[in-house]
């Protein structure tokens, strides 16, 4: 376990480094100077570029960038002078976090409930109904759901606000849009996990010993069946973070995804670079955490850890 954890952390750190380097060189390769506005003199442009340190040789810029990164300094926006990238992130990230966090909770609750229901039901109608809903939910793309919600709830029935997230009703639609796909995945994983575990010998034994069905399902099966769900949490976080690109644009929420899309439209290279590195680091970190947690929880690796056999 310790060896695995060490290796896994090493890969994680190296991934952040690769991402930061790739993002840096790719943003430098992007066509055109970020200060080309069309009406500034070449001399003025050179002066601005000197001010931002863009006249130095590329390796020197790169080293400067890496050392700034280690100090948590992501630079200053090219298009909004005086606005630090870190400030943009610290303002926008809590908004995205709130929506993403709520979506994770909703999808976990709804997904496990639906999955267990589908696994234990004896009615073909319920089974097929849930199957149909999950196929529909994962086949229809999240931005289509979002646009559909705006049209139905905001335009046709005028039930819910579809702009901004100032009041709690404003959260309903964005969170629902975000949560649909992860809910379907969690449902499928839980259902498969339960169906696999329910045929195991230990379940028969526990039932034969006289334990109630709820206890066997809720404690013994649940513990083993939920490992795949836990493993999915890393990819889910990545999905929600990138999902915020469109959801926040649809519902006009001032979060990280909207900032990212806007920074691309504005060709604001430092902001693109900073947000890319930030979001990538978050996802890499969450993946690392879930991997370590799964390794620790899974009996097979834990047995190896205490030396009780392989």
């Amino acid at each position: 376990m310790a060896g695995y954890a060490f290796k896994r952390v090493l890969v994680g750190v190296f991934s952040v480094f690769v991402l930061a380097s790739a993002a840096f060189f790719l943003t430098r390769l992007m066509p055109g100077s970020p200060f080309e506005t069309g009406n500034s003199l070449p001399l003025v442009q050179a002066e601005i570029e000197r001010e931002y340190g863009l006249d130095k040789p590329l390796p020197e810029q790169y080293l400067q960038y890496l050392s700034n990164l280690l100090h948590g300094d992501l630079g200053i926006s090219y298009k909004k002078p005086g606005v630090a990238v870190v400030d943009v992130i610290s303002r926008a990230f809590p908004v995205t976090c709130k929506i993403g966090g709520l979506a994770v909770l909703c999808s976990l609750a709804a997904g496990t409930a639906l999955g267990i229901w589908q696994a234990v039901t004896k009615k073909a109608a319920v089974y097929n109904g849930i199957l149909f809903v999950t196929i529909l939910g994962s086949g229809v793309l999240n931005f289509v759901w979002g646009s559909l919600f705006v049209w139905l709830f905001g335009v046709k029935w005028k039930l819910l606000p579809v702009v901004g997230a100032d009041v709690w009703q404003g959260f309903l639609l964005p969170v629902a849009t975000m949560a649909i796909y992860p809910t379907c995945v969690v449902t499928r994983l839980t259902r498969n996990g339960f169906k696999r575990e329910m045929g195991e010998d230990y379940v028969v034994l526990a039932r034969a010993k006289g334990l109630g069905k709820t206890r066997v399902l809720g404690v013994h099966v649940f513990k083993n069946a939920c490992l795949p769900v836990l493993r999915y949490m890393g990819p889910a976080a990545a999905f929600l973070l990138t999902g915020s690109f469109v959801v926040e644009s649809i519902f006009t929420i001032p979060g990280l995804g909207r900032e990212f899309v806007n920074s691309i439209a504005n060709r604001d290279y430092t902001l693109i670079l900073g947000l890319t590195v930030f979001m990538g680091t978050i996802v890499i970190g969450l993946n690392l955490l879930t991997d370590l947690l799964c390794a620790w929880l899974s009996p097979a690796t834990r047995a190896g850890m205490t030396g009780a056999g392989k």
Binding site: A22, A23, L29, T276, V283, I284
Partner: peptide
Amino acid sequence: RAADVVDAIPSLLYVVLLTLV
């Protein structure tokens, strides 16, 4: 190891950066 590193980074970010370049 290369696969691990590539896999850790959200793939949408590559696509965005490459389309920009």
